[in-house]
Structures are given as structure tokens and as C-alpha cells.
Amino acid sequence: MFARDIMTKELITVSPETTVDQAAKIMSEKNISGLPVIDEDNRIMGIVTEGDLLGKHKKIDPPGYIEFLGGIIFTESQDEYFEQLQKYVATKVVQLMSTDVVTVTPDTPVEELPTLMDQKEIKRVLVTEKGKLIGIVSRADVIRALS
């Protein structure tokens, strides 16, 4: 059995200009946990997930600092803080989506998917052919196929 045999082919996707509120509404209404973000040529730009939406609403703690001789010295990296801040103010999917998307081909054996999902700590993989999105396989799909 291969990814093509268990993938969902009727895809629900969004464009990078979809608002965060629209994406949340789609996920809620369709009872799905992630939406591929594609361009006009059906090429994957990223994915927006429940985790991304939750991250937008989590409390943001500024980096620690100490005052020394009239100056401020940060005791931890500011990069993570600014990344969280950018997600907090995001209004479009393109500002919130994850761009590190894991893809497989239609010929990927189903038996390889649990290891891949575990190693990458993801809940779904996108199935591509010739650089274009053709399906999605969730953990639930894999469990059904293996049981």
C-alpha cells in the first residue's frame, strides 16, 4: 500500500492572502487540523495548522534583560520573541503559516509514514507530484491503513 492509496484527494486549501480568521473558520467548519497554502499554480507555499493558530493566541513573554551602566543587556535571544510577536499580529495566512512542509510522493510506502511523522513531529504529510499538491495523508489515514 502507498500514499496514493490512502491520501485524501478532495483537498481543502487556502491562498496566502486568506485571512487568519477565514482559515480558522474553515478548519472549524470542516473539522480539519491543517490547511495547505498554495499559489495559483497549485504549488505548496506552506501549511497553516491548529498549532499555528494556537500560537497566535498564546501569551508572549519578552526576553529577559538586565540593566547595566545605563544600558540594557538581554539575557536571552530576542529572535524567538520577535517571531512570536509577528505571529501574534498576523492577519493573513502567509504571515502565520509554517513553510517547512514535509512532502512525500504518491509512491511512498505507507509503512514509512509513521516513522517520518514521528521524526518530524508532524500530524500530516502533503503528497506531491511534479511539484504540485495532489493529496494529503493524516495520522488517522495511516492508522486506518495499518489496522
Rank of each mutant, 00 (worst) to 15 (best):
G135S: 10
V125W: 06
K30Q: 07
V37Q: 06
M97C: 03
D41S: 14
G70N: 14
S15Q: 03
V125G: 02
T49G: 04
K56G: 08
Q84D: 06
L113R: 02
K9W: 03
L96M: 05
G131M: 11
Q84H: 10
P16C: 11
E80M: 07
I73H: 12
T8P: 03
T75M: 15
T103N: 01
T103M: 14
E76D: 13
N42M: 14
N42K: 12
V48M: 10
V37P: 01
S77E: 04
I136W: 05
K30R: 15
G71S: 15
P106T: 09
I136S: 05
G46N: 07
I72S: 11
P63M: 10
A145D: 07
P114M: 04
K56S: 03
S15F: 05
A23C: 05
A24F: 02
I44V: 15
D21R: 11
G51V: 02
V89S: 13
V14A: 10
E121A: 13
V110D: 04
S33W: 02
P109I: 10
I72H: 04
T8K: 12
Y81E: 00
A145L: 13
V14P: 00
V20W: 00
A23H: 02
S147M: 12
G71H: 15
V101A: 05
A24C: 11
N31F: 05
Q22M: 14
V93H: 03
N31R: 15
P109T: 05
V48E: 06
T108P: 00
V137Q: 06
L69D: 06
K9C: 14
A140F: 14
V137R: 04
L53K: 09
F68P: 00
L126P: 03
M7T: 05
K25T: 07
K25G: 03
T99F: 00
A140L: 09
T99H: 04
G51W: 01
V110A: 11
I66R: 14
G34T: 01
M117V: 06
D52M: 08
I66M: 10
T115K: 12
